[in-house]
Design a protein around this nucleic acid. Structure first.
Lengths: 167, 167
DNA sequence: ATGCGTGCAAAATTTTTGCATGGGG
DNA sequence: CCCCATGCAAAAATTTTGCACGCAT
């Protein structure tokens, strides 16, 4: 249940302009402090890619550092969200998911109700129409959220390819 | 707009075929039982209209019947959702909201981030484009969710009229 | 009489917060 | 050195579940 195909940031060796650098800058500007935990959490988060639940992130971080507390992960993700490196998403399953957003354009989501795969997409036409609709009601749009739930190609009953064994 | 939705049930005379009747039918068909609580909860829910949180609903129901438990309200709303009279909505605020859906067409939401007002809208063009996008990714859409967050006419900074004083 | 519904409370989930301690700047 | 960050656990907030009892059918 993953599968994002996002272009990797310059994962070169001496590259310093990645999200980690942005976080460091943000931390310094605000007189906050860096820490092993924050670095680990951020690193794991960006390494995981996709749309990560706190639970998943905690598990991953603890693989390297078993004593990191859930609270710290929550607090750090809030930090990442504040400085624009992550976005919190609520798909209707009761778990907040975080998504890396460094320098990424806005996009919406296609979510497979069978295998859970999450695909991102963007559509200018839809965005425009949203503006039109909003204006029609006197609204000024600040943000929006569009999620399409359904069956992905592999999970579709009629087509071919087995639905991953979970109807 | 669709064919003037909500035909006011002019047909039967003695038969009140509103949502309450649908619930009663559903209850009987399934061998379930009616109860004072269920009636009160359903009645309050439909009377309130809009997008109601369980908390609000509980408060309202208890105004008439202080001993109704939260659990019963949850269970009853689940029942209403099962028989298609209500729909559970998750706007990102951590509270499940229920919305009456008897005979209503699909629609999406405009949500004011200042006063919390929720406006419904429907747009065929957007729906069509959603299908196109989904198909392009091999998805078959089962449902979707579109929410536009922003400032309603009254809450817009530049314009006039006061923001109702409730964030 | 049978079994569903209810209230109450405990449990389960998910996220936040208080507090004492330790470490970064 | 001072303040921030962390861990731990308790607290919150929301929703579910177990249980015994009572009422509707």
């Amino acid at each position: 249940m993953k599968g994002s195909s996002r272009p990797r940031e310059g994962s070169g060796s001496a590259q310093v302009s990645g999200p980690t650098a942005t976080l460091a800058a943000y931390i310094q500007e605000r007189g906050l402090k860096q820490s092993r935990q924050r670095e680990r959490i951020a690193q794991s988060f960006f390494a995981m890619g996709g749309h990560v639940t706190v639970e998943q992130l905690v598990a991953r971080v603890r693989r390297d550092d078993p004593r990191v507390s859930v609270a710290t992960v929550y607090r750090t993700m809030k930090l990442l969200a504040e400085c624009g490196l992550a976005v919190a998403r609520q798909f209707g399953d009761g778990q907040t998911r975080y998504e890396a957003s460094a320098g990424r354009d806005h996009h919406d989501h296609l979510i497979c109700t069978a295998c859970g795969e999450i695909i991102e997409f963007a559509n200018e036409r839809i965005e425009s129409l949203q503006e039109v609709v909003a204006r029609r009601h006197g609204f000024e749009v600040e943000s929006h959220r569009l999620e399409l739930y359904g069956r992905c190609a592999r999970c579709r009953p009629p087509g071919r390819a087995r639905p991953e064994a979970r109807p």
